[in-house]
């Protein structure tokens, strides 16, 4: 029991949400639902990356007190995955809005949001 920490739990939930997002992307028929599943996939992946950077019994990488400023490397969690996830969230917003605008454009062309109605590349 003492082996299980908050990072393993977050890692497990991140994997589950990622799988749920993948299931949604592959099985849903409504385009809006597919875009929603993409955002879930994003969230799960971000939780996994942050959980990997977590170290037990250490604090956030913000050096606001004097005791944190000496011998910093043994007192803080890993700042690098957090910086990468910061980038990933902002790009996720860009990708989501672009997908939604494509969906809007598709709807204007064919008057349908269902992916089975788009057969232009099927033979």
């Amino acid at each position: 029991m003492e082996k299980i920490g908050i990072e393993q739990i977050s890692l497990a939930f991140g994997f589950i949400i990622l799988m749920l997002g993948l299931w949604g992307i592959l099985s849903r028929k409504n385009i809006i639902k597919i875009v929603l599943s993409f955002t879930l996939f994003d969230t799960g992946l971000n939780i996994i990356i942050v959980a990997i950077g977590y170290l037990k019994n250490k604090t956030a990488p913000i050096l606001d007190s004097a005791e944190l400023q000496t011998d910093t490397a043994s007192k803080i969690v890993d700042p690098l995955p957090q910086a990468l996830v910061l980038t990933s969230i902002v790009i996720g917003l860009g990708v989501t809005s672009l997908l939604l605008v494509y969906a809007l454009k598709l709807y204007k062309e064919k008057k349908s949001l269902f992916i089975n109605d788009y057969k232009d590349l099927k033979w």
Partner: peptide, 8 residues
């Protein structure tokens, strides 16, 4: 002071 900002 914020190391994440320093990295980003």
């Amino acid at each position: 002071a914020n190391l994440v900002s320093a990295v980003v």
